[in-house]
Amino acid sequence: MEKILFLAYTQDDGLLPKAALETLNAAIDLASKLQAPLSLGLIGDNVQAAADAIAGCGAQEFFAVEGPDFASSRYASDAAAAEALARRAGATLVLAPSVSRFARSLPGAALRLDGRIETHVCALDPGGDSLSIQRWYYRQRMIATLTRSQRPWFLLIDPGVFKPWEGQQGQATVDKVTVALPENARRTRFVGFEAPAADAQTIRPEAELLFVAGAGWTKKQADGQPHVKEAEKLIHDFITKAKASLGSSKSLVDQTCEGGEVISLLSHLNQVGQTGATPRHPKGLATCCHGEEPHTVGWRFINERRAVNLDGSCGWAIGKADVLYVADAFQVMAKVNELLGD
């Protein structure tokens, strides 16, 4: 029989991030379908508040690796904590949210346990008594359903796939697992966070809407001139008013980094597509994008998609968007901003 372990880090407020609550929901559902026991493993400076917040989730056991050494993200301590929790729980299936700390540390933890790992998992199917999962290959070009015989099997679940767990708070009894870090595990020190050199926070994973800006915004317009500063203001105003996350095609980001007049809001981190991100949002609005498949994988995981382009046969939209507005994005977005008000 499988034994399931859910792993999560506490965030600065001592609670679990949304991505973790989503994976928790997936783990609870899987445990019930496989009729397998579920334990939780929490990592952080002090996990009691997080454990209490999910006390009603039905897990059999709560384990924790706690302390200042585990408060911030660092490979050596994170891998040691995950390894210790998986050993203690005797887990055969380890589910964790695909956040940067786990993406960095779980592969090493899996190796130490002679386990295996799958990342970017986007579906779990416990059909019968063996689990199969789905993930994409070749950067969202094809989707595979697969099973594995090796255990423990570590699964990093992509954010935005499952609904976050909601339920009763309570008082959790947490079993502390001690991890003695070797001295060479402290050679790396967490210094802090830094925003890229763009003048606003433009990437918002939780946003309802992804706004994708293409290179058309910097191209010569009907009057024979580019209007980059105007484009920048329209984009900035829109993502601020609509609280949207900003994505960009590769062409536009590359221009940004190659000098000349550029849209200063953008950095490489905004790029979506095969060599960029593939974020998940309920809605997406693409403007001035033309890149054909396979580059349109940038909005593969957007549920409802609309596009604005001057070109009615735009490769980014036809067959890929629900609606294509054949119009000038400068005019449309100026009006949209006006309608959205302040």
């Binding site: 993200s73 660092r74 956040v99 940067s100 050679r187 790396t188 020190r189 967490f190 210094v191 802090g192 966070f193 830094e194 925003a195 890229p196 926070q201 433009t202 990437i203 918002r204 994973p205 950095s267 981190l269 905004n270």
Partner: peptide, 12 residues
């Protein structure tokens, strides 16, 4: 690169 378009800074 970490979540939300941020960087984590570390010293090794």
């Amino acid at each position: 690169r970490i979540e939300g378009g941020q960087y984590q800074v570390s010293a090794c």
